[in-house]
Design a protein around this nucleic acid. Structure first.
Length: 428
RNA sequence: GGAGAGGUGGCCGAGUGGCUUAAGGCGGCGGUUUGCUAAACCGUUGUACGGUCAAAAGCUGUACCCAGGGUUCGAAUCCCUGCCUCUCCGCCA
């Protein structure tokens, strides 16, 4: 959420930044709404001041056993007026809050202005895509052929966009999660968190999934419980409505969780394979940072995520998302895109690292306090470190051999009991 | 799922309709005293949204005693609903 006073004082600037994102103009009636609301606050405030004063006078009269009926009668009328004004002010305020909650974050000045992913800016590349001397297969063929991946039975027991893993496939997924967690906790200074995979709606408001993106989420029936779309949601909300001591910043968490997304509106996109599933696993990185350090923290978080792919020998590139391609709460986002040989070869998103500045903190009441001075809003950052399911398929595709087996990257072997290669196997 | 007890400032804790602008204590901050430390003493203390101001400071208004409604001239206090915590019982990985 943007700061109300900031929007009021920088209306044209805000309009421009939102236009850069390609967001519709949501500030249409902001000025009049804000003006009307403040006028009502002043009127109601002065009436309440009178009410408080007269109530004291009534108390004094009663104590002295004198007649207060005239004042009481007046206050009955004033009370009705206050109820009326409060109602109007509340309605205006709700409209204003609703407007503010619909407005995405303002892009940082360093973000390339553009309309879509076409305008994203490549920052750097790591690794050389492998040259195959045979036609590389897509993972949705490789996996089932190896007997470690099964979409058909997943469709039977649940539905489309789910998968079952067997044997070395299940173990590879588990090994990847452990490998990522160990790397971030041992070498990058993150503290591991295991949060609930179900959260309430207040939590989803805090990180910005609600109210705009309810359709992307799974909601549990007859409750206020929702499945998390990413660990960013529960982990960022750990400090909701709390004030952190400045010396403790930056706080760095990493969390392995399952993630659940309805993928409404993506019918027809990535229908084959593991790229776009309703349920997938992800190791997430979350930071709480001082405002003056948050962009340095974004850089290091992006490097921390990249380390995972480098250790696994997976070629990737880093792109800065353009203003038109960024998520709702982000002020700046880097995507990590891993190279996949299937479909003629190309880079696919495997991590997204964002600095939300104070956008989430303002919604969620995440503050910090310096030794001297008032509480300020912290900056929050989140990034995948990285998506486990997509790493799984990247390993299959990048490390496949002509005979249909898959070589396990060195760094991962200790997590697989020394296994060097996945050979075709029977699932049963 | 059943029964009961609770939810008050950063923390502890008083407070059953108006002398509460939330007592008292702890902690924090500032100061006095002191060879240093400790102690003692004095002062101070949160958040949000407004008004005033060029702006900041300051001054000032309102709201906030889990949340949302209600009763009343007046609610931390009374009523209703919800959420959360704790204790006991039942069920359970």
């Amino acid at each position: 959420m943007l700061d109300l006073a900031f929007v009021r004082e920088n209306l044209e600037f805000v309009r421009q930044k939102l236009a850069d994102r390609g967001a519709p103009d949501l500030l249409g009636d902001f000025e009049s709404l804000d003006r009307e609301r403040r006028k009502l606050l002043v009127e109601a405030g002065s009436l309440k001041a009178r009410k408080n004063k007269v109530s004291d006078e009534i108390a004094t009269l009663k104590k002295q056993k004198q007649d207060a009926s005239a004042l009481i009668a007046e206050m009955k009328r004033v009370g009705a007026e206050i109820t009326d004004l409060d109602g109007k002010a509340k309605a205006q305020d709700e409209k204003l809050q609703e407007t503010l909650k619909q407005i995405p974050n303002l892009p940082h000045e360093s973000v390339p202005v553009g309309r879509s992913a076409e305008d994203n800016q490549e920052i750097r590349r790591w690794g050389e895509p492998r040259k195959f001397d045979f036609e590389p297969k897509a993972h949705w063929n490789l996996g089932p052929e190896l007997g470690i991946l099964d979409f058909d039975r997943a469709a039977k027991i649940t539905g489309a966009r789910f998968a079952v893993y067997y044997g070395a496939g299940a173990r590879l997924e588990r090994a990847l999660a452990n490998f990522m967690l160990d790397l971030h906790t041992r070498e990058h200074g993150y503290t591991e968190v295991l949060p609930p995979f179900i959260v309430n709606s207040t939590t989803l408001y805090g990180t910005g999934q609600l109210p705009k993106f309810a359709a992307d989420l799974f909601k549990l029936e007859n409750s206020d419980y929702w499945l998390i779309p990413t660990a960013e949601v529960p982990v960022t909300n750990l400090y909701r409505d709390e004030t952190i001591e400045a010396e403790k910043l930056p706080i760095k968490y990493c969390a392995w969780t399952a993630c659940f997304r309805s993928e409404a509106g993506s019918y027809g996109k990535d229908t084959r394979g593991l790229i776009r599933q309703h349920q997938f696993q992800k190791v997430e990185l979350v930071k709480f940072a001082l405002p003056e350090q948050s962009y340095d923290e974004l850089e290091s978080m992006t490097r921390d995520a990249g380390r995972v792919l480098e250790e696994l020998g997976l070629p990737y590139r880093v792109v800065a998302l353009s203003t038109g391609d960024m998520g709702f709460g982000a002020a700046k986002t880097y995507d990590l895109e891993v190279w996949l040989p299937s479909n003629g070869g190309g880079y696919r998103e495997i991590s997204s690292c964002s600095n939300c500045e104070a956008f989430q903190a303002r919604r969620a009441g995440i503050r910090f306090r310096r030794a001297q001075g008032k509480a300020e809003f912290a900056h929050t950052l989140n990034g995948s470190g990285v998506a486990v399911g997509r790493t799984w398929l990247a390993i299959l595709e990048n490390y496949q051999q002509a005979d249909g087996s898959v070589v396990i990257p060195e760094a991962l072997r200790p997590y697989l009991g020394g296994m060097e290669r996945i050979e075709p196997q029977s699932p049963t």
